[in-house]
Design a protein around this nucleic acid. Structure first.
Lengths: 153, 153
DNA sequence: ACTTGACTTAAAGTTAGGTTTAACTTGTAA
DNA sequence: TTACAAGTTAAACCTAACTTTAAGTCAAGT
C-alpha cells in the first residue's frame, strides 16, 4: 500500500504542504518517487513520520530532527550519539515540566484570588488580609504574589 | 526609587529592547515618563512586569496580556472576566503538562532502547525481542514503538 | 479527447516575539 | 563645554515553521 502526499497528510493529520516542507528540508530522504516525480509514501515511511512527530513534540528543531534521521540511516555507528540526543532531550523536557508546574501554581493561586474577589464583589477584600486567611495550598505562592506584611503569620 | 529602561531590564533579566517593545505593544500603559520623554519605572511597575512574565510563561500572547492589563485597570467590573481568563489558562496548562508527560514517556523509552543497543553494540538485538524482555515501566510505551508480534505476551 | 482534482516546484508571504539599525536627544562626569 | 554612555523613535531585519501563490504536470473518469 502506497500513499500520495495528500493521503499521508490526512493520516498524519497535517497539511500536505507540511510534508512537502519537511521533504524540502531533508527530513524525508527515505520517501521514493514515481517515474513522473510523485511522492510514494509506504507504511515504513509512516513510522518515520511518527518518530518525526515525537521528536518535534519533545522540542527538537527541524535541523536537529534531520541530524537524527541521518544518524539512524548511518546505522549502528551512531548508537551512542543517538542515546546522548535522547538523554539530553529528557533533561529539556523535565525542565519544561518544572517551569510549567511553577506557572500552574501561580495560575491556581490566581483562580482562588479571583474566585474570592468575585464572591466579595471587589478586590478591596485583600487589602487587610493576612497570611492565615489564605488557604494552606496557596500560601507559599500567595506570599510571593500578595505583598503581605508579616503581621499575624 | 525609579529605574530607567536599562536598569529595569537588568532587574527583569531581559533586553531593554524587550521592554520598549512591550511598551509599543501597549503592555505598559502605567509607566510614566520624565519631561524629556524618558521612561520612569517604579516599584509598582516592577510588580506589573512580574505579572506579565507569569502570563507569558503560562502561554498567553502579547495581545491577551494586553487585554488582561486593561481589565485590571478597569477595576472590579472585570473581576469575573479575569477569573474566566485564569480558569481557561489553567486548562491550557494542564493539557500542556499531559502532552509533555506523554512525550517524556516516549523519550524515556528511547533512552532505554539506545542504552540497550549501545550495550549490545547493535540495534539487531531488538529483532527477536518479545514483550517480556522490555522492563515493565516501558512496556506500554514500547508496545506502540516496537512493532512486536504478539508471541509470548 | 477532455475535464478535473491532485500532484509538482520555486518563490513569496505569514506570524510571533523580539532585535538591530540609524539618526537624534539627554544627562552626568571631568 | 565637551565627551560619552544611555536614552528616544521609526523602521527594517531576524528566525522558525509553515502556508500560499503561480505556473505548470499528471492520472482517472466520462
Amino acid at each position: 500500500m502506497v500513499y500520495t502526499v495528500g493521503e499521508m497528510a490526512k493520516l498524519m493529520n497535517v497539511a500536505p504542504s507540511t510534508l512537502r516542507y519537511y521533504d524540502k528540508e531533508g527530513l524525508l530522504p527515505f520517501v521514493e518517487r514515481s517515474r513522473s516525480g510523485i511522492r510514494l509514501f509506504r507504511e515504513s515511511d509512516y513510522e518515520w513520520l511518527q518518530i518525526i512527530e515525537c521528536l518535534k513534540k519533545s522540542g527538537l528543531s527541524i535541523k536537529d530532527i534531520k541530524r537524527f534521521i541521518y544518524m539512524v540511516m548511518e546505522g549502528d555507528n551512531s548508537l551512542k550519539e543517538r542515546l546522548e540526543l535522547f538523554a539530553k532531550q529528557r533533561e529539556v523536557i523535565l525542565s519544561k515540566m518544572h517551569d510549567l508546574q511553577e506557572t500552574l501554581d501561580t495560575v491556581n493561586f490566581k483562580c482562588w484570588y479571583y474566585e474570592t474577589a468575585v464572591d466579595a464583589g471587589t478586590e478591596e477584600i485583600f487589602k487587610d488580609m493576612t497570611y492565615k486567611d489564605i488557604p494552606e495550598e496557596f500560601r507559599s505562592t500567595g506570599k510571593k504574589l500578595l505583598h503581605l506584611e508579616d503581621n499575624e503569620v
